[in-house]
């Protein structure tokens, strides 16, 4: 089947999609956007998190056909050209990236949190990121990164 989606602002079409394919598979294997990661295929780890019509979703759990006509924003769509989004910059600055496999999903989840809640408390940050597994960092520096991104956002608004 054919799937039409808007990805990071561009209209994209994937042909010969097998009906069992996930949105994640189409993004990674058919549209060349490998930034979203496949780590569990069960919606447990959050590594494949993308915005789908403005709402974060595990793209491994979305059938490609369900995304037809949808608007998708992936980790590749967070930066503005060479300029990193402040969440991306904060992850870099705080050392919140180790192996980095969880990073794309965490960035989308953290980006969404800060959009919804410009001043989240620590428990609110933890609650918002509870669906994203990280095996390297113990989450301490991820907390630092989100706090820094919040500070930076507050400083510029």
């Amino acid at each position: 089947m054919r799937v039409n989606v808007t990805v990071n602002g561009k209209q994209r079409t994937a042909d010969d999609v097998w009906p069992g394919e996930s949105l994640l598979y189409v993004l990674r294997e058919r549209l060349g956007l490998a930034g979203s990661k496949n780590a569990c295929e069960q919606g447990e780890c959050g590594s494949c998190t993308v915005y789908l019509d403005g709402v974060p979703a595990c793209s491994c759990l979305v059938a490609a056909g369900q995304a037809e006509g949808g608007d998708v924003r992936t980790v590749e769509g967070l930066a503005d050209g060479d300029r990193l989004d402040s969440v991306q910059q904060s992850f870099l600055d705080t050392g919140a990236v180790q192996c980095g496999f969880c990073t794309p999903g965490l960035l989308v989840a953290a980006h969404d949190l800060i959009e919804r809640n410009p001043a989240p408390s620590d428990p609110q940050i933890r609650e918002a990121l509870a669906g994203n597994l990280c095996r390297c960092t113990g989450y301490e520096k991820i907390m630092d990164a989100v706090r820094l991104a919040v500070e930076r956002k507050q400083a510029t608004t």
Partner: peptide, 21 residues
């Protein structure tokens, strides 16, 4: 200092083995 692979990783452009094509 920052990781030399950090920018690629936060941009989703770092190629893991599962991303190879």
């Amino acid at each position: 200092p920052q990781r030399p692979d950090g920018t690629l990783k936060v941009r989703g452009e770092f190629a893991y083995a599962s991303d190879l094509w």
